[in-house]
Write a protein that binds this DNA or RNA. Structure first.
Lengths: 146, 146
DNA sequence: TATTGTTATACTCTATAACTATA
DNA sequence: TATAGTTATAGAGTATAACAATA
């Protein structure tokens, strides 16, 4: 028979650690009036691969209506600019402002700090292999791999 | 300056992978009428470390009222038994039934299958180190480490 | 007609607060 | 008066569906 414990599976560990880490990250973003999805949207814009709201929704795997409200809030903070595409006036093209770029840098710094706290309990070799393995998993699961 | 990309941080990778994996696990549990938290509760009971609803809530880091509804549904499925502690009739003691044990085994098997799919894109060495690193992270973040 | 974005609405998950019973 | 559990209510986050503008 199979005596593997649920709690020792990758599924359980990735699921619970992901939730814990996201919550800690979210707590740090709160000071900037942002949620993780806002920062995800900023990162999409910085990557430059897409700009229309519908394309962003597909890339982020969220509903188009969610992109509307995320963009609304980011625009209000001056982090993104919304402009109609002159070639197709149905499309709203979002671009990062200088402020948005700065905001993304600040949030990335917060993530890097949290990374350091996490990696602190790992040996350098473990930390390196963790990064390698997570990159491979991201690549094969439709997540950003850069 | 710092040119680390948000998407390459542990925070981002653990957060997004955790959400993706949880969703895939959840989809497989649906056939059994369960959500990940139900299975988490079954795993707590199997571990035998606690049994009263309040202790379970603390261990799972959820509100006591959530344990009530999780236990309600599991009891209705015949997976757990609720009995008043004769020494303190305020306490509800939850125990796994044979059916509950079987259900947990089935769900664990689903997790193990998903694990295999995930690990399929890793070298054996990477997979081993991933497990080691996640165990260390779990241990230092108040998550089950057995 | 089809597509992009928006608005209105509803659903899922979970917490907080009020309540009951036991101690 | 304090604690375990329950019920009632509310909030966050997000999706679905109806709608408006443009193609």
């Amino acid at each position: 028979m199979n005596d593997v414990k649920l709690t020792s599976t990758l599924v359980f560990r990735l699921g619970t650690l992901g939730a814990t880490v996201s919550e800690r990250f979210s707590a740090r973003l709160a000071a900037h009036g942002l949620k993780p999805k806002h920062v995800g949207l900023l990162a999409v814009l910085e990557s430059g691969v897409v700009a229309s709201q519908l394309d962003i929704a597909k890339l982020m795997n969220v509903a188009p209506s969610l992109v509307v409200s995320l963009a609304d809030q980011l625009e209000e903070q001056g982090a993104v600019r919304r402009e109609r595409d002159p070639h197709d006036r149905r499309r709203q093209v979002l671009t990062l402002t200088a402020e948005g770029r700065e905001l993304l840098a600040v949030c990335t710094e917060a993530a890097v700090e949290l990374d350091a706290e996490l990696a602190d309990v790992l040996t350098p070799k473990e930390a390196g292999m963790l990064r390698t393995a997570l990159l491979a998993l991201a690549r094969h699961n439709g997540l950003p791999a850069d």
